[in-house]
């Protein structure tokens, strides 16, 4: 309810994602697994959302559907005002290219290519990024603070730097939404903080971000926390009203007082 009130107040903001009763069913043998069991969700421009939940709760499936890697079995999914439910493979590929940036837990950089070439890759497949790809890739690498690592290969970079390259790659096509799947899962806590700071910075620059995670300290950076269970949205609250967050903050305050 509070969310709705907030969005009502902020009518100038743009609706980026609208999910209505999205159901995703996998068939494993004769068994039918309801990975998503009727999800309805709205995401506005410049929101910073953390999707949380135990494994098997459907958060990865939600991520795949949001990222147009997978299509819902039924339901309605609108991205940037475009209905994606009836789109062809090629049209979905273009949506992924132009509107979505992926950040993966395992970075997924190509080891034989330099950081610059890795970042250029999405532009190779874009309609008009080909000729400016070097310049754009350089710019976005500067944006994530890697201007002196342009020629390095992934094996010459630290884990944090690799994830920065991956984030640069996700941003290079100016996506409407940045989807990060456990972006700090393979990083130590100090490096994680650096990456999360980068996300904060991007959010301040106006980027819409969705992070899938199961770590509370990661979710703490988001402004809105969606908790999933058994393919359903269990709670969807602004961060300050999220019970787990409140409890943690109370502990922090208490520790400070003591």
């Amino acid at each position: 309810m509070t969310l709705k009130m907030q969005t009502m107040a902020d009518k100038t903001e743009k609706l980026i994602i609208r999910l209505q009763n999205v159901i995703k069913i996998y068939k494993v043998g004769v068994e039918r697994i309801h990975a998503l069991d009727g999800i309805s969700l709205e995401l506005w421009e410049n929101e910073y959302v953390a999707v949380m939940g135990p494994s098997g709760s459907g958060k990865s499936t939600l991520m795949n559907v949001l990222g147009c890697l997978d299509q819902a079995t039924s339901g309605y999914y609108e991205l940037d005002g475009q209905d994606t439910t009836k789109m062809s493979d090629a049209a979905l590929a273009r949506i992924r290219n132009e509107r979505i940036g992926f950040v993966f837990q395992t970075f997924e950089l190509l080891g034989r290519l330099s950081a610059l070439k890795n970042v250029e890759m999405p532009l190779i497949y874009s309609r008009n990024g080909w000729w400016s790809r070097r310049k754009r890739a350089k710019n976005v690498l500067e944006r994530v603070g890697l201007e002196d690592r342009i020629k390095h290969r992934p094996n010459q970079l630290s884990g944090g730097e690799k994830q920065r390259v991956a984030i640069a790659r996700a941003l290079v096509c100016n996506p409407s939404i940045l989807l990060a799947d456990e972006p700090t899962g393979n990083l130590d806590s100090k490096t994680s903080e650096g990456i999360l700071k980068l996300f904060d910075q991007l959010h301040q620059e106006g980027q819409t971000i969705v992070i899938v995670t199961h770590e509370e300290h990661v979710a703490r950076h988001a402004k809105r926390i969606i908790r999933m269970r058994d393919g359903l949205i269990h709670s969807d609250l602004p961060r300050d009203q999220d019970p787990a967050y409140k409890k943690v903050m109370q502990n922090v305050v208490r520790e400070e007082l003591e």
Partner: peptide
Amino acid sequence: TREIGLRKAVGAKKSA
């Protein structure tokens, strides 16, 4: 295989 998956994720079409 992973590379192909990644390329598809960042927008490579089947034809590409």
